[in-house]
């Protein structure tokens, strides 16, 4: 299996701001790569470089065998891009939008027209196909934008925060579509702020922060990096919350997180169910009323917090000082 996307040491600066600070990544053909990070981590800049919209200040990248700078014009026939906000024409109908994209991929008039209908059907937009996009819902526009990226059936697809701003139902339906594409063998690079999205769609995930990849692996590997299981319990009062936090501290292998709003305590532990029993024993001894308690595998949220959260904290403290 060869690599569909490789990026080596990508650097991009905007004045004093370094958007990308030597970013590396490799995406094998036919896999989904998730670029996960907060706003300003450099996700969109990475996508813009890989899709020939921006030139990197340093480093180089290849997509589908083409250099993104030197072979930019050739590469464009082999990629599809769907952006953060739906780049569709309000005054054109759904069919006209896709036909236009087909013609600009040089598919010819007939094939463009046929392909537009196929995609509208597939994305459940056939009923609205001949209405101007102006009156469409946000979810429908996103699906149309994604359909636009697929007009030429490109082997490599870039999805920049495909579901940001969508309601949960529209998001779930878009996820189904993306999962289908992947099943057909398309290589996908996906950026997202949602752990759930990366967890569900991506084979491998790169956590980015300040323009660098700070962790890389499958969802399970990343979860493994932040330790084993977690005890998560909720209590009934704020006073109990503090006591519970103190009682669990000796058992935890990392920091105990206390969520005052949800009255919830989370502690990373080793030892599985035995640890939970010990914890409950300690809480009973301290006379803490436990409303709910459980042992769970770490989520990507935990990964994200432990990898980027600490750095962000450290930075805040520095500026305070």
């Amino acid at each position: 299996m060869s690599d569909a996307i490789t990026a080596e040491g990508l650097v991009k600066r905007y004045g004093d701001v370094t958007a990308l600070d030597g970013l590396h990544l490799t995406v094998p053909e036919g896999t989904v790569f998730g670029l996960l990070g907060p706003n300003g981590a450099g996700k969109t800049t990475t996508v813009r470089i890989l899709t020939t919209l921006l030139k990197p200040d340093a480093g180089h990248a290849r997509v589908a065998g083409f250099d993104v700078v030197r072979d930019a014009a050739l590469l464009r026939a082999h990629i599809g891009v769907s952006g953060q906000y739906a780049a569709v024409d309000d005054h054109l109908t759904g069919a006209e939008n896709l036909e236009m994209v087909g013609r600009l991929y040089h598919l010819g008039v007939k094939r463009s027209r046929r392909r537009a209908r196929e995609l509208l059907e597939r994305f459940d937009l056939a009923d609205a196909a001949d209405r101007p996009v102006q009156g469409w819902s946000g979810g429908m526009r996103r699906r149309l934008d994604l359909a636009g990226a697929l007009v030429a059936a490109p082997p490599v697809l870039f999805l920049d925060e495909p579901t940001t701003g969508l309601d949960p139902r529209a998001r779930a339906s878009l996820w189904d579509v993306i999962a289908e594409l992947v099943a057909e063998g398309t290589t996908v690079l996906l950026t997202t702020q949602y752990m759930e999205e990366a967890d569900r769609l991506a084979d491998r995930i790169a956590v980015t922060d300040h323009g660098r990849v700070i962790a890389l692996g499958t969802a399970d590997e990343l979860k493994g990096q932040v330790g084993g299981d977690r005890i998560e319990l909720s209590v009934t009062s704020a006073a109990d919350l503090e006591t519970a936090g103190r009682a669990l501290a000796p058992l935890a292998v990392g920091d105990v997180q206390v969520d005052a709003d949800a009255l919830q305590v989370t502690a990373p532990v080793t030892g599985g169910a035995a640890a939970l029993t010990t914890a409950l024993g300690r809480l009973a001894a301290e006379r803490v009323t436990v409303r709910d308690a459980g042992l769970r595998r770490p989520t990507l949220d935990d990964v994200f917090l432990s990898l980027t959260g600490h750095e962000a904290d450290a930075e805040t403290k520095e500026t305070v000082r």
């Binding site: 050739l74 464009r76 891009v81 952006g83 906000y85 780049a87 600009l104 040089h106």
Partner: peptide, 13 residues
């Protein structure tokens, strides 16, 4: 403003 040119620029046009 709408980002439509970004789409055009990723096409082989």
């Amino acid at each position: 403003q709408k980002g439509i040119f970004d789409r055009f620029r990723t096409l082989p046009m």
